[in-house]
Structure formats: structure tokens, C-alpha cells
Amino acid sequence: MTLTLAQDAGRLGDAFSSLGPAIVAICAYRALPIAAHTLGWRAVVPAADRPGFGAMLVMRWIGESINTLLPVGQVGGDVARARLMTSGGVRTEAAGAQVAVDFLLGMASQAAFALMGVAALLLSAPGIAASLQVLAGTAILILLAGLLAGLQRKGFFTGLSGVVKRLMGEETASRLARGAADLDREVALLLGQRPRMLAGFGWRLAGWLAHVAESWILLAALGLPATLETALALESLAWAVRSIAFLIPGAIGAQEGGIVAVGLLLGLPAESALALALAKRTREIVVCAPGLLVWLFIERRGIRSLLATERPH
């Protein structure tokens, strides 16, 4: 037993150590998906409120860093993005609505991405048991996206202020209710602009698809079959597991378990699947830790010039 564990640990160590150059590559590559997701958010923001692309890219990076490394339920980064937008001169309600709609488009496009992953898994590893498990998880993600869309259309923030009223009293709730009504109006206005929503959805989906190259790079570095179907299944379903496990800080354990489970369904060796999961966790730390430092620097220095909106001429 001890020998078997030592052999397994040795194989895992060998697999992970072979990924050094690939980890450097996926850390550098990460800028592309972040840029695509930024363009999706940027499509939602009206021209009068829109900072420069570089500023929004930094804000997106900061938001992703907060959601990835801090115990904020994977939404604290979105609150930080809205706060940074207001620091650049955008009205609080407008900034909150823009981030809320971008969050909705992110969930909707991720649900589509997850369905692509299910199709890729069925092509690569057909089997009714695996199919049912994966479809169940994907269905949860789709239901969450649909529920959020319905709530936003019916006045999500106004409804939330009603809950606050029961918890915190009339005076506090009345102040929040006024802001919530304004926020719901801003959300409704944005959702009514279909071309902008379609552009945002398209860019967000492009961002999710860009992530697939990360798994492809790692699979190739491990000497495993790096097909599009395998990389798509691994990447999309790992993200789906991470989103469903939003209450777990950083989805620690859940993300790794999801990658290993999907990897085993695809026929990958256990040590290779685990090495791939650890490589992705390493990439998160390398990319997102500097994002937290940049956020702290901006907050402490009160930098506004970086975040200033581009006024249309």
C-alpha cells in the first residue's frame, strides 16, 4: 500500500514537473480570454459611461482575481468592478446595472459553453451514466442563468430591498428601496437594447471558448491526445463545476475534483488529470495574485485618471 502511494505520488510529481513551460504559456495566454470577456462587458456599457479598453481590462482582471482568490462567493469581484466604475465617474446605479447585466450574460454564455462541453464529452466518451451526471450539473447551471434572467426582468433589486425591510427595519429599507428601483430601471433599459445584448453575449461566449486552448496546451505538454473535443469537455465542465460550487471559497477541491472526474471519463490517467488540475490552480495564483495587489494599490491611492470614462465627441 505504501509503495503504491509512493509510486502514485512519484507519477504525479513527474507529470506536474513536465508542465513547467506549459504553465508559463497558459499564464501569458490568460490575457486573451480576459480581453474577450472585457469586450463583452464593454458592449453592454453605453458610450457615455465607457472607460478606455485598457482601464476596463484592468477592472475585469481585478474582478476575476477577487472572485478567484478571496472567499466572496464568486460575486465580490463584480461588486468591486461596479465600485471601480463609479470611481471613474459613472453613476452608482448605472455602474451596478452594467455589471449585473454583464454577469447575466456571463452565466447565459457559460450555460451555452457547458452544453458544448456535454456534446464534446458524449463524442469522446459515450456512456449513459456519465451523460446523466454531466447533464444534471449542466441543467443546474442553465436553471440558475434562467432564474437570474427572470428575476432581473421582474425587478430583482427591488425584491431584494423587500427582504432587507423585514431584516433591518423600515428606515434602512426605504433608502435601499429607492436605489433598488433606480437600479432595476437601469437594468431594464439595458436588457431592452437587443443588439448590445447580442454583442455582449457573443463576446462572452468567445471568452469562454478561448479558455479551451489552456486545456489543449496542458494536454499536449503531458503527451496526451489533445483533441478539440477533449479540451472543450475538460474546460467547459470544469468551469461549470466551479460556478455551481460558488459557495466554496475559490471552489477549492470542487474544481480539482471536477477536472479529475471529467478527465477519468475521457480516459486520462488519474495522475495526469490531477496534474492538469494543479497546473490550472497554479495559473490562477500566478495570474490573480498580482491582480489583488493592483486592486489594493488603486483603492489606497484613489487613482481616478486610469478609470475615467471616455466622453463621446
Rank of each mutant, 00 (worst) to 15 (best):
Q152Y: 14
I34F: 06
S109M: 07
R283F: 02
K154W: 02
A48E: 15
R166A: 08
A245C: 10
L205T: 03
L232E: 04
L57N: 01
G40I: 04
W61D: 00
R60V: 11
A251M: 01
A261D: 08
A31V: 10
A100R: 07
S87Q: 10
G253R: 04
G159N: 06
E64I: 00
R42P: 01
G117A: 04
P46H: 11
G89S: 12
G96L: 15
G54P: 04
M85L: 15
G263I: 08
V44S: 04
R91A: 15
L219N: 13
S17I: 01
G10A: 14
A100K: 13
G77P: 02
S87V: 03
F16Y: 05
T227C: 02
A28V: 15
P195M: 08
I26C: 12
W239E: 14
V44C: 09
G179R: 15
P249K: 09
P312Y: 10
A277L: 05
A125R: 01
R204H: 13
G117S: 07
A233D: 09
A277K: 05
A220Q: 10
L183Y: 11
V24P: 04
L198A: 10
V45F: 00
S18F: 11
V118P: 01
R30V: 07
L148H: 13
E229M: 15
V262T: 11
M116Y: 02
K154S: 07
A275M: 03
I248F: 02
F156R: 07
L237K: 02
Q193T: 06
V294L: 08
G169K: 00
A254V: 08
S87I: 02
A119T: 03
T227F: 04
G150Q: 09
I252K: 15
G302T: 07
E171P: 11
A180M: 13
I217L: 06
A25S: 09
L189Y: 12
H37V: 03
G200H: 09
G250Y: 03
F156T: 12
S17C: 09
I140K: 00
V187H: 12
A270R: 13
E170Q: 10
V163A: 11
L115C: 03
L209N: 04
R204K: 12
S174G: 07
F157P: 01
R50M: 09
A188S: 15
L306R: 10
V260W: 01
S18V: 11
V287Q: 01
T38G: 11
L307D: 00
P51C: 14
A120K: 14
L70S: 04
H313G: 13
P21L: 05
A119S: 00
A36W: 02
A119W: 04
H37A: 07
G202L: 13
R166Y: 04
G13R: 04
V24C: 12
R194A: 02
R81I: 10
L183A: 09
P46K: 11
C27V: 11
P249M: 09
A177F: 04
L3W: 03
E271K: 06
A139I: 05
Q74F: 11
L32K: 07
G202W: 06
L148V: 12
L115R: 01
L222H: 05
A188P: 06
S124M: 13
L132Y: 02
A108K: 15
L190Q: 01
L123G: 05
V44F: 02
R83Q: 13
L268I: 14
V134H: 02
G302Y: 06
T38I: 13
